[in-house]
């Protein structure tokens, strides 16, 4: 299987940079800047261009991991990075002001990556805010993208094993999409 490019998207403070740091086998490339928007996410830095990391899956498949900035004013980077991606890890922090709306907004922007390969949703910081429940995310996904297979996990972006589980489930979906496309081509 060729190289996969996987995008990590989601709101500010969801844990995109942290997740790529947890997963990457190489030293990650970061573009963090001093964060002046403490109301949205109370943390020292925020991503202003991209995150980059790499991980090998199986024997030799290299997976390139790109993180986007969460703040919408950087959405020109969303367009640039989305172009190359075949799959999406959509991270949503459960302690966001309105996480279910964030989910809907980011699915609206990035949901078409499902057709290119696959999408998984990963709910983070559920230790910080215990609601909404994961079922509410699943329900929203059914509402905005009916009939699509989009798994939902809760995970801690700081935890390599948990992030690996999300990523592996996405890669399985991407490979299945590719197999279906290939068999449809053969049938045609």
């Amino acid at each position: 299987m060729a190289e996969h490019v996987i995008l990590f998207a989601g709101p500010m403070g969801a844990g995109k940079t942290t997740a790529i740091e947890s997963l990457s086998e190489i030293e990650t490339i970061r573009t963090e800047a001093n964060n002046t928007d403490r109301e949205t996410a109370d943390k020292d830095t925020t991503t202003v261009a991209l995150d980059y990391g790499e991980i090998t899956v199986g024997d030799e498949d290299k997976v390139r991991l790109y993180g986007v900035p969460g703040q919408r004013r950087f959405n020109f980077m969303w367009t640039i990075l989305k172009e190359r991606a075949v799959g999406l890890v959509l991270l949503v922090n459960n302690d966001a002001a309105d996480p279910i709306q964030e989910l809907a907004d980011f699915l609206d922007e990035f949901g078409d990556l499902h057709e290119k390969g696959g999408v998984v949703v990963c709910v983070t910081r559920s230790d910080v805010a215990t609601s909404p429940h994961i079922d509410q995310y699943a329900e929203k996904i059914r509402e905005v993208l009916p009939g699509r297979m989009i798994p939902v996990f809760t995970a801690d972006a700081r935890n390599t094993d948990q992030m690996r589980t999300c990523l592996m489930s996405l890669i399985a979906n991407i490979e299945m999409t590719a197999m279906i496309a290939a068999s449809q081509e053969r049938a045609a």
Partner: peptide
């Protein structure tokens, strides 16, 4: 302003 910030960081 947004783009220049990305450029600077890159």
């Amino acid at each position: 302003a947004s783009m220049a910030s990305s450029m600077q960081a890159l």
